Simulated assay, not measured.
Amino acid sequence: MTKTPKGRALGNALRQARQEQNLTLREFATQLGRDPGVLSRWETGDRTPKPEQVAQILTSLGVNGDRYEEIVDLAYGADDSNWVATTLPAQRQQLAAFIDFEQNATKILEVSPLLIPGLLQTNDYVRAAMTAARVPASELASRVAVRIGRREVITCDRPTPFTALIGEAAIRQLLGGRKVMIEQLRYLLEMARRPNVDLRIFRFDSSWHPALAGQFHLIETTDSTIVHLENLKSALFLHEDSDVRTYRLAAEKVLDVSMNQAESAKLIRYIVKNMEKDSEC
């Protein structure tokens, strides 16, 4: 059975709960009276426990309340081809799974027609976007910190290769105002000089391409490739080969209509220069 994103997320949640109690896999298997090999496959997502088995594990580990309900909920439909998150708890679970995929990625590609990709956003850009989206003030600081922390995957000592295909609209939109955008665009130029970052812009005057249908991620790990899509009210993981193939072809088509790296940097510098002139007026 193919490992699913939701099954992997369930396994990660079970492993984290066990590790918080400082129990080894073998110790906990003995406590539960189960084969440690079975528990290991549940924690890696190679096999999916039934909801009642998840409940037994969490009860034994002293997990309760909202966290208990959210982890048990992961067991329902964990083997399904698609993982759709429409509620806030499900979206939090998916975000945790998405970050796990990013941290373990061997290659990341993002097509982003309207916004600067998350891995390339400055602190002020993140804050401006989340404030405009009316993220509750009580959650703002933690959510900004999570977004900023994600950058490490492309800035660490052994960074992940990252291809960012960005729409011209994203680099012209005055999100947060001119000062924020000038800083953001300068940061794009800085990041584009990194050998692991391939940053390309697709212009307004390009022909039809799949990015016109919306943003998407392709994340490759050593054992799987997933597609992540999101909109205002929901998010979706795809992992079936046919779906991944469709989005690989879509990414290739967007790449075909995008400018090369040098041309992209030149356009960004041109926009920065014009924004700076407007700021002086």
Rank of each mutant, 00 (worst) to 15 (best):
residue 63 V to F: 04
residue 70 E to Y: 00
residue 98 F to P: 00
residue 106 T to C: 05
residue 171 I to L: 04
residue 27 E to D: 14
residue 225 T to G: 03
residue 35 D to S: 08
residue 158 R to N: 14
residue 235 A to Y: 06
residue 57 I to L: 14
residue 55 A to Y: 06
residue 232 L to Q: 13
residue 192 A to I: 04
residue 201 I to A: 07
residue 68 Y to T: 00
residue 155 T to N: 06
residue 164 A to V: 01
residue 213 A to R: 15
residue 88 L to N: 06
residue 142 S to Q: 14
residue 181 M to L: 10
residue 33 G to W: 10
residue 270 Y to S: 14
residue 264 S to N: 03
residue 40 S to W: 11
residue 66 D to N: 12
residue 76 Y to R: 12
residue 19 Q to C: 07
residue 139 E to Q: 13
residue 158 R to T: 15
residue 227 V to W: 04
residue 225 T to Q: 14
residue 84 V to K: 10
residue 162 F to M: 06
residue 184 Q to C: 02
residue 90 A to Q: 15
residue 62 G to D: 04
residue 114 L to H: 09
residue 155 T to D: 12
residue 121 Q to I: 06
residue 169 A to N: 13
residue 68 Y to I: 01
residue 217 H to R: 06
residue 241 D to K: 11
residue 235 A to G: 14
residue 1 M to Q: 08
residue 202 F to C: 03
residue 114 L to N: 09
residue 78 A to D: 08
residue 48 T to K: 03
residue 191 M to A: 06
residue 176 G to I: 02
residue 268 I to A: 08
residue 86 T to I: 10
residue 237 F to W: 10
residue 120 L to V: 06
residue 11 G to H: 02
residue 201 I to Y: 09
residue 125 Y to E: 05
residue 204 F to N: 11
residue 168 E to I: 03
residue 153 V to W: 11
residue 66 D to G: 07
residue 192 A to K: 00
residue 110 E to A: 12
residue 165 L to K: 02
residue 181 M to W: 07
residue 81 S to K: 12
residue 50 K to L: 12
residue 264 S to W: 05
residue 277 K to T: 14
residue 243 D to Y: 07
residue 12 N to T: 01
residue 32 L to I: 06
residue 98 F to N: 02
residue 182 I to F: 03
residue 160 T to R: 02
residue 15 R to G: 09
residue 10 L to P: 01
residue 146 V to K: 14
residue 23 L to H: 05
residue 104 N to C: 02
residue 257 V to A: 04
residue 278 D to E: 15
residue 34 R to V: 11
residue 188 L to W: 04
residue 269 R to N: 12
residue 78 A to N: 07
residue 38 V to G: 00
